[in-house]
């Protein structure tokens, strides 16, 4: 039960670069969403991406997982320059994500949503599925074991069979994290996983993110507005403003960077 990402990352040591973006520029018509952005993510770190609304954070994730194709710049992944790829091909390379606005499969249960996250690990074909008994059933059961581990990990056993549409907002966010984790990603992109949560839920989510980092050694890119959370759980921080990078470093370095203070921390936001 491996996908292509597992073998790509196998020769990367912790602390070495997993992904880097270099001189990325992206515009929509006349609007420049990203201008000449470069930064890297090293294996096993939590890398926060912060900045005011409209700074280009989500656009950056969309470039990394292939929804947007930048006019300029390159993406390097596991030591190789990445050619233009479709999002589903990038998923098979071990990059998973959650969305700023929840994007669960509304018609499915928690269990099925997370099982769907195992897609890149499942290989049986239509004919095998038509007859079910044998490889298809076997694969389903093996992957179910993995999914149950994730359900236990996220403490969502009681909502296993609940249609996700019926779940409260905070739990939906958690299920979406579960779906991304089910891919056993090399790189996990989280777009505002704590937006709209109360303090308790934020604490839970922070704990899960740190546990993922610790237990699975997953590299994590995290977009987050709550500075307290960012300072607590991230190893390094990139700061964007109006599509430009204005800061990059440890939480402490960023906190004391004058450009960042002016552009971001000084500006009131929600």
């Amino acid at each position: 039960m491996k996908n292509h990402g597992t073998s790509l990352v196998s020769n990367i040591e912790p602390g070495q670069e997993v992904l880097s973006v270099q001189n990325i520029s992206l515009s929509f018509g006349g609007v420049k969403a990203l201008t000449d952005i470069s930064f890297d993510l090293v294996k096993g770190e939590v890398r926060a991406i912060i900045g005011p609304n409209g700074a280009g954070k989500s656009s950056m994730l969309n470039v990394i997982n292939g929804f947007y194709h930048p006019q300029e710049g390159e993406v390097f992944y596991c030591g190789q320059k990445r050619n233009a790829m479709k999002p589903h091909q990038i998923a098979h390379q071990g990059i998973a994500r959650t969305f700023q606005n929840i994007a669960l499969f509304k018609g499915m249960s928690t269990l099925d949503n997370i099982m769907t996250g195992r897609f890149t690990h499942m290989k049986t074909n239509v004919l095998q599925h038509a007859f079910w008994r044998g490889p298809a059933e076997q694969e389903e059961i093996e992957n179910r074991l993995k999914v149950e581990e994730i359900i236990d990990f996220l403490e969502i056993q009681t909502i296993r069979k609940t249609p996700v549409g019926r779940l409260p907002y905070g739990l939906q966010k958690r299920v979406e994290l579960g779906r991304a984790l089910a891919a056993e990603p090399v790189l996990l992109l989280l777009d505002e996983p704590m937006a709209g949560m109360n303090i308790e839920e934020k604490e839970d989510m922070s704990r899960f993110i740190l546990d993922v980092q610790e237990e699975f050694g997953t590299t994590i890119a995290l977009i987050e507005h709550d500075m307290g959370v960012v300072m607590d759980i991230s190893d390094r921080v990139v700061v964007l403003d109006y599509g430009k990078k204005i800061g990059d470093g440890t939480p402490d370095e960023v906190r004391n960077n004058q450009a960042v203070i002016d552009a971001y921390l000084g500006v009131p936001h929600e």
Partner: peptide, 27 residues
């Protein structure tokens, strides 16, 4: 059989939220 496993879920994923289906690896 087709709808109870991976294939059925990939169909439902496209139905419910096609961009999320794509980032999970569904073509």
């Amino acid at each position: 059989n087709l709808t109870r496993g991976r294939i059925g879920r990939s169909w439902m994923a496209i139905r419910d939220m096609d961009i999320a289906a794509e980032i999970i690896g569904v073509d």
